[in-house]
């Protein structure tokens, strides 16, 4: 399966486009790295592809089919700051089960401890929350993962743990990944191919 974004253009302000005629193709068996400076529009592209921004021009398709918006969205975005993506008044088991109930085995792979499930989001660290937000995105209906700087704020040890578990799961379940980061060294380790944002964005 291929995820294709064709000729995407988007502007926050009239006549000041941030994305212009941008095309990208991601196969389901690969990790594509995307590198670019801060403020260049990487996150905007992520939001377009994963359906958060709707009034763009161009198309986002899975194997040339437009994506059904009424069902579970098969392209899931994982954000840089997990604490901003969770309801502060929900305990962690509810945060997780909003998407699905992962098997115990998978929870162990991601290093989720059982006693974390009864806690509130503000009682866990960023690294612990990020494990939840990744696992939450790995619903069986997910076909592609867009990882927008998901390990930037984590220490090096947690960074390896998270990527190791995510890459492993995605390989087994044929989920393609778009890994966005400004860290070249990280992308060289995790990605099959690296694209430079400024080269594909035809501003």
């Amino acid at each position: 399966m291929y995820l294709n974004a064709n000729n995407i253009s988007y502007a926050y302000k009239k006549n000041k486009p941030i994305l212009k005629n941008l095309s990208i193709s991601i196969p389901d068996n690969k990790v594509i790295g995307l590198m670019g400076d801060s403020g260049s529009g990487k996150s905007t592209l992520c939001k377009v592809i994963s359906g958060y921004i709707k009034n763009y021009t161009g198309t986002v398709t899975l194997d040339n089919n437009l994506i059904e918006t009424k069902d579970f969205y098969p392209i899931q975005l994982i954000f840089q700051h997990p604490e901003k993506t969770m309801n502060p008044k929900w305990k962690m088991h509810k945060v997780l089960s909003e998407s699905w109930n992962p098997p115990q085995e998978l929870m162990d792979t991601f290093g989720l401890k059982d006693n974390w499930l009864g806690r509130w989001p503000n009682e866990l660290s960023g690294g612990e929350l990020q494990r939840f937000s990744i696992l939450r995105a790995l619903n069986p209906k997910t076909k592609f993962i867009i990882a927008d700087e998901i390990s930037t704020m984590l220490d090096a040890v947690t960074q390896v743990q998270i990527w190791d578990a995510l890459l492993d799961y995605c390989k087994q379940n044929k989920i393609g990944i778009l890994a966005v980061s400004h860290d070249k060294e990280l992308l060289e380790v995790i990605a099959d191919d690296i694209l430079l944002f400024n080269e594909i964005n035809k501003l």
């Binding site: 006693n115 690294g127 040890v157 060294e185």
Partner: peptide
Amino acid sequence: PYTKSLIEALPRNGFKLTSGVQPL
């Protein structure tokens, strides 16, 4: 040992996996 695994976990030093989380 934690300092060692922190340095070895850097992408340029092998991206070595060490399991375990900091106690709450």
